[in-house]
C-alpha cells in the first residue's frame, strides 16, 4: 500500500524542494535571531522600567508583561501585525507618501520581538535582582555614569543568572517563528506545508523540516551551554 519514499524530492534543484526548504529555514533563523535581539533590547528596557522606573512607568511595564503572558502568541502576533502595518501606513500618509508594503522580514521580527520582550523583561528583572546591591552601589560610589555601571557591573554580574532563562527564550523564539506561517510568512513551516501539499508526501517533508528545527535547537543548546559555563566563571557551582 505504501510506496517507497522518493528522497529525490528533497533535491536542492528545481524538481526537488530541498532548496526551497533550506531558504525557508534560513528565513526562520533570520526571523528568530532578529526577534530575539529586539526582545533583549525591549527586555532590558522593561526590566529597568520595572526596577528603577517611576510609578507610571512601572505600571505600564507590568501591564505589558501581563498582556504578553496571558494572551496566546498567535493572537498577539495577529494584533501586532495589523496594528504595526496600519500605524506605519498612517505615518507614511501623514508625511504625504504612498502607503507602502512593509517587507515581511521586518514585520515578522517586530512581531516576534514584541512577544519575546515580555518574557525577557521578567528574566532580566529576576537576574538584576539577584545581583548583590552593594556591587552596584560601589560602582556608583566610584562616580561611574549610569550607563557605565550598566555596562561594567550590572550586565556582567547578572549574566549568569539571566542565561538559563534567555537560553530558554531562544528555543521559544525559534519555535515561535512557525506561528508566522499562519499569518502567511513563507518561513520553514509554511514552505514545508506547500511542498507536502504539492507532492502529497506529508511525512517526508514534515520530518525533514522537523530535523532542521531539531538540529537548530540541539546545536544552539551546545553553544548556549558553553556561554553559560563562561559566564559562570568564578561563581560557586550551581546547586
Amino acid at each position: 500500500m505504501i510506496e517507497a519514499i522518493d528522497f529525490s524530492l528533497l533535491a536542492l534543484t528545481s524538481p526537488g524542494w530541498g532548496g526551497a526548504l533550506l531558504a525557508g529555514f534560513l528565513r526562520s533563523v533570520e526571523l528568530a535571531a532578529g526577534g530575539y535581539l529586539l526582545g533583549i533590547v525591549i527586555g532590558l528596557l522593561g526590566a529597568t522600567a520595572k526596577l528603577y522606573g517611576g510609578r507610571v512607568l512601572r505600571d505600564i511595564a507590568e501591564i505589558y508583561t501581563l498582556l504578553i503572558r496571558a494572551v496566546p502568541e498567535l493572537v498577539l502576533m495577529l494584533l501586532f501585525y495589523y496594528v504595526g502595518t496600519d500605524l506605519l501606513n498612517q505615518l507614511m500618509a501623514a508625511f504625504g507618501r504612498e502607503g507602502i508594503d512593509i517587507d515581511g522580514l521586518s514585520a515578522g521580527i517586530l512581531v516576534i520581538g514584541l512577544v519575546q520582550g515580555g518574557y525577557a523583561t521578567e528574566v532580566f528583572r529576576g537576574a538584576i535582582r539577584a545581583v548583590p546591591p552593594g556591587q552596584i552601589e560601589a560602582a556608583q560610589a566610584f562616580g561611574m555614569s549610569p550607563f557605565r555601571v550598566l555596562r561594567r557591573v550590572t550586565l556582567p554580574a547578572m549574566a549568569p543568572h539571566a542565561l538559563p532563562g534567555m537560553a530558554n527564550l531562544w528555543m521559544i523564539a525559534t519555535k515561535d517563528t512557525a506561528l508566522l506561517a499562519v499569518i502567511g510568512f513563507s518561513e520553514l513551516t509554511l514552505v514545508t506545508k506547500q511542498a507536502a501539499a504539492a507532492t502529497r508526501e506529508y511525512f517526508l517533508f514534515f520530518f525533514a523540516a522537523g530535523l532542521l528545527y531539531l538540529a537548530l535547537t540541539l546545536i544552539s543548546n551546545l553553544g548556549l551551554r558553553w556561554l553559560e559555563r563562561r559566564a559562570r566563571r568564578g561563581l560557586p557551582a550551581a546547586a
Binding site: I2, M171, T174, K175, D176, T177, A178, L179, A181, V182, T189, T192, K193, A196, A197, R200, Y202, F203, F206, F207, A209, G210, Y213, L214, T217, L218
Partner: peptide
Amino acid sequence: CTVIRGTPLLLQLWLIYYGLGAL
C-alpha cells in the same frame, strides 16, 4: 521529550493531521 520540545507545535500538528490523515 527532546524531539517534541525541540520542534514547533504547529509543525507537529500539521504532520499528524495531514500525514496521519492521508495515511
